[in-house]
Design a protein around this nucleic acid. Structure first.
Lengths: 225, 225
DNA sequence: CGAGGCGTAGGACACATGACGTAGCCGCAG
DNA sequence: CTGCGGCTACGTCATGTGTCCTACGCCTCG
């Protein structure tokens, strides 16, 4: 188990690449008597190393790690997964400006015990930390709503696409029009449109340009650089 | 002139949609004796209204506005432009996580007197604010370097675009619709369409998706990876 | 002062795109 | 054999996109 719980105070490790944000959270957390900041890290890698170091030197581990998602070197999801594996007793709460379902999903799958948006009321942060320390999972209400909506339409990801759809998406991601795609694949333009429409629907996107960006991000095609 | 300078203390208005970030900056700025936070706003619109209100009630205006770029209703660039026009004595310093050249360009063109990244040392913020109040322009070193590099190696086709058009293109390349772009830049959708159309024409492209790919290829925005 | 570029905006129009429903065909698993 | 998923295709409708043209206000440059 981690070192803090028996003291009655919840130990927290802050992880964010923005010094300003760390300072803000630090200032806020310090104002909550039941919370105590044990340290800071500027990215996931550093956080993992810091925990490892604390463990070997016998220092008390934090009860909760408050983690940003977007960071250099090792991002929040990867760090969460690493921490969950190496230190099962340490809970991870995500604090980010990112409300996208994809991220939420990935973070929770990696073992996150909470998800708070930066534009939420600061008190939310304390609530989420306390809940996590108590073994509960606290989600930002806006995030939870969005997540629920997504549950209804399960499986978003390139894996949910059929091979033909991935082929279509690859062409979309190269800037081709439906007409182009149809000619290239020797199908009718209507069919090409049906495929594109299905792709957008499965990926929960609203335009082919967004689909193109996602295809690049997911490595379906190599970036145009 | 704005109200503060003769007192020897620099008055600051914080503008950021993330309560956590406001708190952090507030805490930091408060720790610097030569700075004083006069108020906060959660978006550009609110900031502009607040300044107007202060002016009419005769309250001292801030010397410097510390402004985020990405905000709902009215973004940082639009707000900077509005403030520069309505209150020439008030300097605007951009504090954002966005290091993209386009944003920097747009912000400076709108009249920003400084540009600091959130992952910089907090002391940078104080430096930039002080510099701005003194009439200087302080750029984050990383940003300045990137800006210089971009200046040296002008982008092939992109140079034929006006700054506004590059701004439009950057948004297109993030998957935004014309409606989105219009809202974000506080212009009519017709105007957004005009810009997009001009961009496509100048770049000899036939769709926004192609424009997005070119923008990524040319480094106008960072690839979605 | 006049010319021209830029940002803004609207009208009119053509075409592309996307949503939704329907349906035939084919191959494979139950 | 039957059912189901995937690929094909069409119709319709709503909306998004892109083009062409005109126009106004603001600047800057000559």
């Amino acid at each position: 188990m981690s070192g803090g719980p028996d003291t009655g105070v919840i130990g927290v490790l802050l992880v964010d690449d923005h010094a300003i944000v760390r300072r803000g959270v630090q200032a806020y957390v310090a104002s909550v008597p039941t919370l105590r900041v044990l340290g800071e890290a500027a990215d996931g890698q550093q956080a993992v190393e810091l925990l490892h170091q604390w463990q070997t030197t016998g220092e008390p581990l934090p009860d909760v790690v408050l983690m940003d998602l977007q960071m250099p070197r090792m991002d929040g999801v990867a760090a969460t997964a690493a921490i969950a594996r190496a230190h099962p007793g340490v809970k991870v709460v995500i604090l980010t400006s990112f409300g996208e379902v994809e991220r939420v999903h990935a973070a929770l799958a990696a073992g996150a015990a909470g998800y708070v948006l930066k534009d939420a009321d600061p008190a939310e942060v304390a609530t989420a930390i306390t809940a996590a320390a108590a073994g509960e999972v606290h989600l930002d209400s806006a995030v939870a709503r969005q997540l629920a909506r997504r549950m209804a339409a399960p499986q978003a990801g390139l894996t949910s696409l059929t091979s033909r759809e991935r082929e279509i998406l690859a062409l979309v991601a190269q800037g081709h029009s439906n007409r182009d795609i149809a000619d290239r694949l020797v199908i009718s333009e209507r069919t090409a449109r049906t495929h594109v429409s299905n792709v957008l629907s499965k990926l929960q996107l609203s335009s082919r340009t967004q689909a193109a960006l996602l295809a690049i991000r997911e490595g379906l095609i190599s970036p145009p650089a």
